[in-house]
Amino acid sequence: MIASRKHGFIFIKTMKTAGTSIELALSTVCGPDDILTPIGVEHDRLRADAGIEPRNFSDTLEARYLKALRKRNNKLMRPVLRELEASGLWAHALPDAIKARVGRKFWKSAVKVASERHPYEKALSRAYHSYRKTTPFAEHLDRVVFEERFYIGHRYYIQGGKVIAGFFVRHNLLNEDFARLCNRLALPSLKLP
């Protein structure tokens, strides 16, 4: 999740929709007061190598995470990431958690951006990436579909029957939509990694 006061947008990160690519690209134009939640051990290390650190995401966990990140200590980073997920304000934060952090006024005025993809493709993508060959693939796919349900997207951008996102980056039109987003937010034309 990114909340950029500098550019007036909030990026709500759904799952399995190229959200990390979008987040990495948008991170490069954020200011010191913007909120950048951690992405995960590997991506945060990559982002830190480029001089970009997560920031302003937690009053209690941030110092610990940054200390661990600066030491490139994965073992210390992981428990903080788990605590952050439990707190609700993590990479895939839902609207209410974001609203609580950024405040009602900015929440209302910001362009809320989300990426989305056909749920069948999201389910398959998740199943392929998480498959460890310890069970038959069909069984694993059943677990992804019927139990994990990471493909559900609407809770990130529909509240009380109303669509709260003002801009969608569609996975099947990723580059085109991202270019339109940069244009809409008056950002330089950014490249998706």
């Binding site: 749920p119 349900r149 609407h154």
Partner: peptide, 30 residues
């Protein structure tokens, strides 16, 4: 292979039930 063809009919039906609002919003095929 399209995702639709890998998933079973019961898996597709379940996903559709869970994701009805986004199917409607984006006009996706079931």
């Amino acid at each position: 292979t399209p995702a639709r063809d890998v998933l079973s009919p019961s898996q597709r039906d379940f996903i559709y039930e869970q994701c009805a609002p986004e199917f409607e919003l984006f006009g996706w095929e079931r």
